[in-house]
């Protein structure tokens, strides 16, 4: 099976004097896997996710996604790589308040250079699949937390990325909405989508992930099937 994510001896240090946020982390995620990265606050989960997403750079080691080593890429190349290969869902959704739900989804497609008609069709499909057709023209301020997270998911998937990253996707929604989000992620993975999920919600990890990796003090403490 092809490795979608491969981390080799990855370290990330924010301050020279302080302890590293990540220390000598080795991790491989194969295509079709759903990996949940767990750990207490400050264990390095979000740092790891940022490095995989190319949002941050490691201090040491090597990060490769979909066969491309990210370390040497320029910021521009990283941005282009993200467009085509990575979808990200954030804890606080990070939707643009000035755009409707549909325009938020279309934005990512337009940045990736998808033809307008194709982008409209793809956004419509995703919003329908996520039960948001009726809310397509609503602004984020008018959506519930669960709806916002579904819009964020649609935006993450619009360019059909081989890798979906989710950073505490249920952290800012109520329990019922959290279950819906978990259901969606599981369905996506069952459809072949590779997912890396960062959470400290053990129930969510168990429901969505095929494997759980536990981080403690910046190191991989354990990695076992869910």
């Amino acid at each position: 099976m092809t490795d979608v994510v491969r981390l080799r001896a990855v370290g990330r240090r924010y301050e020279n004097a302080g302890p590293p946020a990540l220390d000598e982390v080795d991790l491989t995620v194969s295509a079709g896997e759903a990996v949940a990265v767990m750990g207490p606050s400050g264990s390095g989960k979000s740092t790891l996710l940022n490095l995989v997403a190319g949002l941050d750079r490691p201090t040491s080691g090597e990060v490769a996604v979909a066969g491309t080593v990210l370390n040497g890429l320029s910021e521009t190349a990283l941005a282009r790589f993200r467009r085509d290969h990575i979808g990200i869902v954030f804890q606080f959704f990070h939707l643009l308040d000035d755009l409707t739900a549909r325009d938020n989804v279309l934005l990512a497609a337009h940045l990736a250079g998808m033809p307008r008609a194709a982008a409209q069709e793809r956004a419509g499909e995703l919003l329908a699949a996520l039960g948001l057709t009726a809310k397509a023209d609503a602004y984020p301020a008018r959506l519930s937390g669960g709806e916002r997270q579904r819009v964020a998911l649609a935006r993450a998937l619009v360019n059909r990325p081989p890798l979906l990253l989710a950073d505490e996707p249920t952290g800012a929604v109520d329990a019922r909405t959290g279950e819906q989000v978990a259901e969606l992620l599981r369905d996506l993975n069952e459809g072949g989508q590779t997912v890396v999920l960062v959470t400290h919600d053990a129930a969510l990890a168990r429901r969505c992930a095929t494997r759980i990796v536990e981080l403690r003090d910046g190191r991989v403490a354990s990695g076992a099937p869910a």
Partner: peptide, 16 residues
């Protein structure tokens, strides 16, 4: 800056 972060996260290049 936060919005810029989001745009970069979804693929906006530094030049853009």
């Amino acid at each position: 800056v936060h919005e810029i972060g989001v745009l970069k996260a979804i693929g906006m290049t530094p030049q853009q």
